[in-house]
Design a protein around this nucleic acid. Structure first.
Lengths: 263, 263
DNA sequence: GAGTGGTCTAGACCACACT
DNA sequence: GTGTGGTCTAGACCACTCA
């Protein structure tokens, strides 16, 4: 099945703009205008070579450009397709409100239910580690002190969307279910409060970047998907940091919503 | 000047891993281990071709991979360099606090001063437009109503870092300095309060993605730099939306910090 | 087996930066 | 001018998908 109808213009070989960029421009235009919809197949390399009368490397460069921009994904043996966007999950600023813990729900589960998504957690591991300076600074622990580290991966409807590692001072975690893979109803925040550390506020530091190769693998990210890096610090009523959570979130799967006071 | 000392291993042509990926792996390792520092020059294509005994397209693919990951940038005629990271600016959650407006400062200026950066604003334009649904939904205006649109670009130490467009209902903006390029001391939030709309809170919706070509051009972004998209809605004491600001921020130049209550 | 994209070679000419 | 990366050609063989 040919799908060259989307290609209207010819190439101007005398133009300053490189031929492969002109080809990319036309394909991009087809995508952005909606002539090619999400999940639809782009013309094959052979079709583009024929249509534009150029070498294969030239059309491959054009396609590479679209892939780098996150507009297209290639599937070996099948073709190149307009990238599908996953449904976006909105994380509201009350997502760590105590009422969710009172319900016996951890934050991620509570959030997912709100949009009717099926959520799972896997790759849970608990250990004691010497945290990076970024973490120990926030926890206020000495640079040589160990802390309890809890790593896990979250999945939404079977797709991995988030990697998280929590760090908790040993004097809070030791001897509690925080040391176990399943920390019980309400998650670790409920356990921290059980220990007498009533939570008062969280600070979230949000940045964005492209994933490392490791992160891309674990989150199944196609090229052209950035991630959120979110470092959350939990403070108790005394103003002491009781947990730091370092999170990598698939950038196309989340919208973070925050409320700021004007006063 | 040769700089092949960083390349320790040879290529295994029988490996499952493509040759260009193995070359990329070695260069990546050199960068991540610090053997190649920020701003340092990678071996030239000619050196890599010689060192690994491969075709030029193979080393170019390796370098392309690093560029896509945001680890390296190519400069035509000069070489390929380890990407430099700009200093990160932390935006605290009190950045729209009234005290900053009382000082006669708009938010961006107040923030920049805090880190000793020189800040400028350019490309200011004011017009009346029919906003997108995304905007009109937040403003609560009808889909056919026009609103006042204020666009501008922010620069830090001479480098563009942020594009912003504010949308204000015409009944608030008309006849005020909001319609002028320079809205006066304290920025447009001060003018909105002058009109009797005391600000109570803001809601910021943060997402991340790769820039469009247009955004990359205006923000001077190298491939491999995502952007923050931040849509801020300002509410007055009556709970009415009085402004929506649609912002694109260079993802490597900002860290967004927010405070969440635990109750 | 036919069609698809993935990898790799061996050239060519060009544009830009430096000295 | 020399060295650098940018573009482009014309092939080759391979791996994957689907009928």
């Amino acid at each position: 099945m040919l799908n060259e109808g989307i290609l209207v213009n010819q190439i101007d070989p005398t133009s300053d703009r490189a031929v492969f960029r002109q080809i990319a421009d036309q394909l991009r235009q087809a995508i952005e205008s909606g002539r090619l919809r999400e999940g639809e197949k782009l013309p094959s390399e052979a079709e583009l070579i024929e249509h534009y009368s150029v070498a294969r490397m030239t059309v491959r460069q054009a396609i590479q450009e679209l892939r780098n921009e996150g507009l297209a994904v290639a599937e070996h043996g099948r073709g190149v397709f307009v990238r599908r966007r996953p449904p976006v999950k909105r994380l509201a600023s009350d997502r760590f409100a105590r009422r969710h813990r009172k319900d016996g729900k951890a934050a991620f589960l509570a959030e997912s239910e709100a949009v009717g998504a099926r959520s799972e957690v896997d790759m849970i591991s608990v250990s004691e580690v010497r945290p990076s300076k970024e973490i120990s600074d926030r926890l206020g622990t000495g640079s040589d002190q160990t802390v309890v580290s809890r790593s896990r991966r979250y999945l939404r409807d079977g797709h991995p969307v988030e990697l998280a590692t929590s760090y908790i001072p040993v004097d809070i975690a030791r001897g509690t279910k925080i040391m176990e893979p399943n920390p019980g109803p309400g998650g670790i925040y409920a356990r921290i409060e059980d220990q007498g550390h009533t939570l008062e506020r969280f600070v979230e530091d949000v940045s964005t970047r492209l994933p490392t190769r490791e992160e891309a693998k674990l989150l199944n990210l196609t090229s052209g998907t950035p991630v959120f890096r979110l470092i959350r610090t939990a403070y108790d009523l005394q103003g002491a940091a009781v947990e730091v959570c370092d999170t990598i979130m698939s950038g196309d799967a989340f919208l973070l919503s925050y409320e700021l006071p004007a006063h």
